[in-house]
Amino acid sequence: MQIAKSWRRQPANLRLEGTRCGDCGRLSFPAALRCSACGSTRAQEFRFCGRGEVLAVTVVYEAPRDFAEHVPYPAAIVRLEEGIDLPAMLTDIDPADAHPGLQVTMCTRRIAAQGDAGPIVYAYKFAPAGEC
């Protein structure tokens, strides 16, 4: 059971919190201890707005372990408004309606649970804008 691991991902998972480099301004999601562009360790908390556009999407029928309960799920690359590309599941959408170009908004959903006794992971999925 990995409680601390799921806990430390909460700011990213629940609030789409990452960092902006205090020196070069580069945005990272999730938070970067060290800017991969300039090497700076002066990071400022940055909350992404949650709006984005689907660049690519697939509907998954055979899932890796622990994701069978979501099948069939649309798995997408979402380009956030701030320019970062984020792999994320889509939700509140008929799989057939998922397509590149779709405007989406972040919502919080149950992603996984560590068995029947472990912590529940709540994290981001994306729904069609104005849908969730």
């Binding site: 697939t58 899932a63 890796p64 994701f67 798995a75 792999p87 590149p100 996984a112």
Partner: peptide, 24 residues
């Protein structure tokens, strides 16, 4: 591991995403 494996993505899912985009 944190952003992809933990969110239901795998090499197969990634390849499917890529295939669709390449064709389009």
């Amino acid at each position: 591991a944190a952003q992809e494996a933990s969110f239901g993505f795998s090499p197969t899912v990634a390849a499917a995403l890529g295939m669709g985009r390449y064709l389009e």
